[in-house]
Amino acid sequence: MTAAAPTSAALSLAPAARTRRRILSRTAKYVLLVIFVVVVLTPVYVLVVTSLKPPADVNPATSWGLPIRWPWEAATEGGPTGFDNWTLAWNALAPSLGRTFAMTIPAALISSMLGSMNGFVFSLWRFPHANLVFTLVLFGMFIPYQAIMTPLVQMKTTLGMPSNVVTLLIVHIIYGLPICTLIFRNYYESVPFEILEASRVDGAGMLRTFGSIILPISVPAFVVTIIWQFTSAWNDFLFAMFLSDTSGGPVSLALNNLAQGAQLSNYGASMAGALIASAPTLLVYIILGKYFVGGLMSGSVK
């Protein structure tokens, strides 16, 4: 490469100076990257450390330090330990955890299934004005949900729907449809048309083509939409606030309840609770991060 550009301005520097400059800029880059890692992870440090401090150890002066007595040390000495925070948080959140799984998993599966059918039609088996209809469906994912919340709350009352995860399950399926449709449509756009032509020649109808040719190759897109739907339903707070109550609502509501009830001295329990409530989505992110990013990027439409 250097030989190809003999007049390059960079070449006018002596080779030694150039190497030095390159090493310097590389070092600066890594120093910056590591500083940002520290900044991004600071809240995690605070969460973990504070959750392990018994109320007696909570003191502004030492609030950034490690626990004076680690819970396992304190446990042998008797008295309250940092583990009490975790017990308290667990007791506050445990009833809602099961409900939240029962809500998020079916919501993710059902909207993904519908999304794949829609994506198939909007990309491979179109009807006239399919693009317009698709755009109209897509709009649903960009609206501020406040715009439908007042009538939705009234509708829930009129129909006598319960203030718990059952109602939220339905709501998450409905408002997850646009993004699932989008992800599947983008995914199917890359399917070669010849595959469809071949199946048409074979005389296969739409459903057979979908079921025997398209569905089997859709696994990656299903992973993306299921993860995406699971995460957004799990982390949802808006619908939970408007449509459910703490006795029947998801873990986000229970966590908020725990945190809002806490005094400064009791931050440990809220922090333990935040870690417990985040564990499922964080695990999914750590194990299946690649697919999570896939869902994220689809939010930018193209």
């Binding site: 890692v37 935040a274 985040s278 992110y285 994220l296």
Partner: peptide, 17 residues
């Protein structure tokens, strides 16, 4: 992955810290 991880956490959980 580290820069992106906060996306996986809910606002309610991060609000606590």
């Amino acid at each position: 992955s580290i820069y992106l991880f906060p996306m996986a956490v809910s606002f309610v959980a991060s609000g606590v810290v």
